[in-house]
């Protein structure tokens, strides 16, 4: 029964771009939201470490993927300085190799940088961790926008998709879909292992967990680096999808995607596997509707949504359901006889 539901969901996800061809770019953006919300929840919801700096991995993923793709064919410094000069072209083989190596490289680079940043910031707790990681993301955006070798404030322009423009939209949608589904499968398994319980234990009482002999620091680093790996890949794919991106508004967009991922998780329910997915869908719908029909007021509507969520609906949709219908989630008193 459970697997039937999953199969149906997957079928819908695969059919979506063909059923709604006009919305393919928007559906791809939904997958980005799902990926960043799920990865944010790994530390924020499951482990109790609210990072405001996960956008760092998205931006860094974009840059690393782009630089790798370019460096495989051209000199990066010359390429980024040659906007007005001669045209630089990529064969489709160079394009796809660059994309594959670039996105995987972006994931690995982000995972490693999560280990380094985590080592420095995981001593911070609560709001201090949130602010510390936010600082990292803001600083990175400023540094990158002053680094001429990778295009400075103008950003980087990547080659366009070599095939048909319409087919390109499907292509990017499915890249995000594959990444997202892989992430959901991985988390579905991980949260059921002892490791999943260990990160929950860190969330509930880290000192107690230490006292029981759990190696808290290595577990926290590992969790965040997995999250960073997926955000880095999503960033890399976005770089190719957007073709041109610049540091502050697109890559290290702390106040857009950096906050959206948190709102998605809060909306759907922290610390659950499907909460972030549901939250991302609801948030995306809300955002698309306000951007299309209340243009000019969209940021006000969004701000209102955040305030209402945080003030009245902290536990999110799944958290609220768990409160109302605990028995649906297996929360019940059960005697020895009844268990048999």
């Amino acid at each position: 029964m459970k697997y039937l539901v999953y199969a149906a969901l997957l079928a819908i996800a695969i059919a979506a771009p063909f059923l709604f061809p006009d919305y393919r770019t928007s559906l791809a953006a939904l997958w980005i939201l799902i990926i960043v919300a799920l990865t944010w929840d790994m530390t924020g919801g499951q482990m109790g470490y609210n990072s405001l700096g996960n956008i760092f991995f998205y931006g860094t993923g974009m840059y690393v993927a782009a630089v790798i793709c370019i460096a495989l064919v051209y000199d990066v410094g010359e390429y980024t300085n040659a906007f007005s000069g001669e045209e630089q072209t990529f064969t489709s083989e160079q394009y796809f190799t660059g994309m594959l190596v670039g996105c995987l490289g972006a994931g690995v680079f982000c995972a490693l940088s999560a280990l380094v940043i985590g080592f420095l910031t995981f001593g911070l707790r609560g709001p201090y961790f949130a602010i510390g990681t936010l600082g990292v993301a803001i600083a990175a955006g400023e540094l990158v926008s002053n680094w001429e070798w990778i295009g400075g404030g103008q950003g980087i322009a990547l080659p366009v998709y070599p095939g048909d423009f319409e087919a390109g939209k499907d292509f990017f949608y499915f890249l995000f879909l594959v990444t997202g589904v892989a992430l959901i499968l991985l988390l579905g398994w991980l949260y059921r292992t002892r490791f999943g319980l260990a990160i929950n234990a860190i969330r509930d009482d880290e000192e107690k967990a230490e006292g029981m002999g759990i190696k808290t620091l290595s577990i926290k680093l590992f969790t965040w680096s997995i999250a960073a790996f997926f955000v880095g890949i999503a960033g890399g794919i976005s770089a190719f999808q957007l073709i041109h991106f610049e540091p502050l508004e697109t890559a290290y967009q702390t106040i857009n995607l950096g906050i959206f991922m948190v709102v998605c998780v809060l909306l759907g329910g922290k610390g659950t596997l499907w909460g972030p997915v549901i939250g991302a869908i609801l948030f995306h719908l809300f955002k698309e509707v306000t951007w299309n029909y209340f243009l000019g007021w969209q940021w006000v509507a969004l701000g209102a949504l955040i305030v209402v969520t945080v003030v009245f609906f902290q536990q999110g949709l799944l958290g609220w359901l768990m409160d109302k219908k605990p028995e649906w989630f297996g929360i019940r008193v059960e005697s020895r006889e009844a268990a048999k």
Binding site: R194, F195, N200, A201, A209, G213, K215, G271, I331
Partner: peptide, 25 residues
């Protein structure tokens, strides 16, 4: 661990001294 159920509280309290990192998975 307040947000976990009793069984989960027990399952994560296994003796970690006998485990390597792989045993976490």
């Amino acid at each position: 661990y307040g947000n976990m159920n009793c069984i989960e509280n027990m399952l994560i309290s296994v003796p970690h001294r006998k485990m390597g990192l792989l045993d976490m998975f």
